[in-house]
């Protein structure tokens, strides 16, 4: 299945990707599966969203889908049906903090 991913501006620039990014994920579609596919497709993103070694989400990065904050959920939680169906994107967001 293909998941639509919206990246924050700095990561879009880094990945040289315009607009939404499409990643292919094998079922089950989870946060972890999307991030694995994203980093495989765009290796320059490794370490920018989650830690290289622990794969823990960076503190100022958040995950949203269908108006739900998935940041604190298990990375193995299933993504909402609308994201799996391609009707809604999976959002990677840089927290509004700092200057």
């Amino acid at each position: 299945m293909t998941i639509r991913v919206v990246l924050p501006a700095h990561l879009r620039t880094l990945a040289q990707a315009g607009g939404e990014v499409l990643v292919d994920v094998s079922p089950p579609a989870t946060v972890r599966a999307v991030l694995d596919a994203l980093e495989s497709q765009y290796p320059v993103l490794r370490g920018t969203i989650r830690d290289h070694g622990t794969l823990v989400r960076r503190p100022f990065v958040r995950f949203f889908a269908c108006e739900s904050d998935l940041s604190l959920e298990s990375p193995d939680i299933a993504l909402p049906d609308a994201v799996v169906a391609g009707d809604e994107p999976f959002y990677v967001i840089g927290a509004i903090a700092g200057g």
Partner: peptide, 8 residues
């Protein structure tokens, strides 16, 4: 680098 996205 950045506080959000780490080190490059």
């Amino acid at each position: 680098g950045s506080g959000w996205f780490g080190q490059l």
